[in-house]
Amino acid sequence: MRVLLVEDDGTTAARLAAALRAHGHEVVRDDPQVILVGPGSLPACGTLRSGTTRPLIALVGSEHDRVTALERGADDYVFTPFDAARITERMRAVVRPPVRPEPEIPLDIGRLDLSTAERTLLAQLLDRPGQVLTRAQLTRLPDLADALDAHVTTLRRKLPGTLTLEQVRGIGYRLTVGR
């Protein structure tokens, strides 16, 4: 797998790069499949996230670092001590396509009276029914950068009874189809 390694500490970067290469990965400077952010570069997560849609995995040393990395846009994390096999496992997981079939959601968005932000939110959720979209993923979208909770509340009121917009506490939201 092609990995962009972002780490300010030279010793840690060299150790991680060697471990990744030993597990068959290519450490690259451009066109990565996944971005790996070392503990010395966690503040860069937000900047990296705003410039790419590639999966971003943070290497963290504490619960505080984990929360910070996820809030700044990391898709996943690995705690220290860093084991190359565990990092490889997490990288494969974030680039793997979903295996479960997506439910068919019959909905004509044009018939709903939605604001631009509500339409953007619903379109994102409809693209991935049943999957949790993180707050970081949703607030990266221009129309949803501000007041995500307010848009969720108003969209919930406008959805037909067969659809439910669920909050997954501490993570984000998912759209489910009622029976």
Rank of each mutant, 00 (worst) to 15 (best):
R2V: 02
R2F: 04
G10F: 11
A13Y: 06
A14T: 15
R15I: 15
H23S: 12
H25G: 03
V28A: 02
D30F: 10
V34N: 06
A44Q: 15
A44Y: 13
A44L: 14
L48H: 14
R49E: 10
G51S: 14
T52H: 00
T53N: 14
P55V: 05
A58M: 11
G61Q: 08
G61D: 03
E63Q: 07
H64T: 14
D65F: 07
R72N: 12
D76M: 05
V78Y: 10
A84G: 09
T88L: 09
A93P: 00
A93L: 13
A93R: 12
V94M: 04
V95Y: 00
R96Y: 09
R96G: 02
V99H: 08
P103G: 07
P106W: 15
L107E: 11
G110I: 05
S115N: 06
T116E: 15
T116M: 13
L122N: 06
L122H: 05
A123L: 08
D127T: 12
V132F: 09
L133W: 05
T134V: 04
L138Y: 03
L141I: 08
L144H: 04
A145N: 05
A145F: 14
D146I: 15
A147F: 10
A150D: 09
R156P: 02
R156V: 04
P160M: 10
L163Q: 02
T164A: 14
L165I: 09
Q167I: 13
V168R: 13
R169G: 07
G170P: 06
Y173Q: 02
Y173T: 08
Y173S: 02
T176A: 00
T176Y: 00
